[in-house]
């Protein structure tokens, strides 16, 4: 198998995995919710409920097959990546369309809420492991500084779909440390989001702990990948591509398995947020709710409360990180 056909095969696998994950959404969601709409018990087995579920299948399966066909017929083109986006975009549009369709059947979950005045809760100990990736990046920077003379004057840092280098860095401060700084910004943002997720969500939400674990895994993966690029160059070694794919999966799969195990347990009541504060069953806007993160209605964890002004701090951080990415890339000669 050539490198190129391997990449196409991997992308096709990702496409199929995405489609399967999206198809599972209505079945993973709390039984009292359907496409983000709180419905009466047994609604799923009614004709309207069944029809909505069948329609969602069509929303996912047809674009996925079209995307797969595009990947096979037009391989190694920009359309391959576009094909990959078709399924999630169609899934989101389908979800919103069905949310609107089911809204007339919505019931308002009880808004009565209670809490205990117990002792102050502490952050789980493992959340502090989120500082590890930052220390790792700092450690790599220190290593590179100490071995500056061993770094080649010009080294590859980015590769095209065929595995051929297409971006090079020079042995300069921006060339060597740019990736580390970008990775550090990203890791810091994720660590901040971990803390915000813990302190900004309701204690009654049992998914706070799994959310921390997943964020920790994602932060570690990001930091690992950004640390490996300059480290390989300076160290004069190159990790095989399969290992670069397997390493993140080793961190991510257990975290996601824990998440899936903990999600949507029957004991958890639906977060009693007002129906009118949900837009399309996906976006939540409630300025009278102090929570920064609330339970999503599509069964996929948390979402931001856009009515909380503090959410803009997170978005500012995200924009800052995303804006500095192209800056790092532009500083690298083709």
């Amino acid at each position: 198998m050539t490198f190129h056909s391997g990449v196409v095969l991997s992308l096709a696998f990702v496409q199929i995995f995405l489609a399967a994950a999206l198809l599972a959404i209505p079945y993973k969601t709390h039984r009292d919710l359907l496409f983000g709409v709180p419905v009466p018990p047994g609604f799923r087995s009614t004709e309207t409920g069944r029809r909505a579920l069948n329609l969602f299948w069509l929303w996912i399966v047809i674009p996925s097959l079209a995307g797969l066909a595009l990947m096979i017929l037009l391989p190694a083109s920009a359309l391959t990546v576009v094909a990959l986006l078709v399924t999630p975009v169609a899934g989101m549009v389908g979800f919103v369309a069905l949310n609107r369709k089911l809204k007339p059947f919505a019931i308002q979950p009880s808004l009565v809420r209670q809490t205990t005045l117990g002792p102050a809760e502490s952050l789980p100990w493992f959340a502090w492991l989120g500082l590890g990736p930052l220390f790792m990046l700092a450690g790599v920077a220190a290593y590179l500084h100490a071995h500056w003379d061993q770094i080649p004057l010009r080294f590859p840092v980015h590769f095209d779909i065929n595995g051929t280098p297409n971006r090079w860095a020079e042995r300069s401060v921006s060339g060597v440390y740019g990736f580390l700084i970008f990775g550090g910004e990203f890791a810091l943002l994720l660590f901040g989001m971990m803390l915000a997720g813990w302190y900004g969500s309701r204690r009654s939400n049992s998914m706070r702990r799994p959310a921390l674990v997943v964020m920790l895994a994602v932060e570690s993966i990001i930091a690992l990948l950004f640390a490996l690029v300059p480290l390989q160059t300076a160290g004069g070694f190159r990790l095989p591509i399969p290992l670069m794919i397997v390493l993140p999966l080793v961190l991510l799969i257990p975290a996601l398995a824990y998440w899936a195990h903990e999600s949507n347990k029957p004991r958890d009541p639906v977060d009693p947020t007002p129906n009118e504060c949900w837009k399309g069953g996906i976006l939540y806007y409630n300025p009278n709710d102090a929570a920064l993160f609330v339970q999503r209605r599509d069964g996929m964890g948390f979402t931001i409360n856009f009515g909380n002004r503090r959410c803009w701090l997170l978005y500012a951080g995200l924009i800052l990180v995303l804006a500095s990415g192209p800056l790092v890339m532009q500083s690298l000669p083709k």
Binding site: L111, R113, Q114, T115, L117, A120, Y199, G200, S201, R202, R203, S204, P272, T273, P287, N288, D289, A290, A291, L292
Partner: peptide, 11 residues
């Protein structure tokens, strides 16, 4: 903020 978040009310 903790109590407001848990009770889903404005702080």
């Amino acid at each position: 903020r903790r109590l407001a978040t848990d009770l889903a009310v404005h702080f």
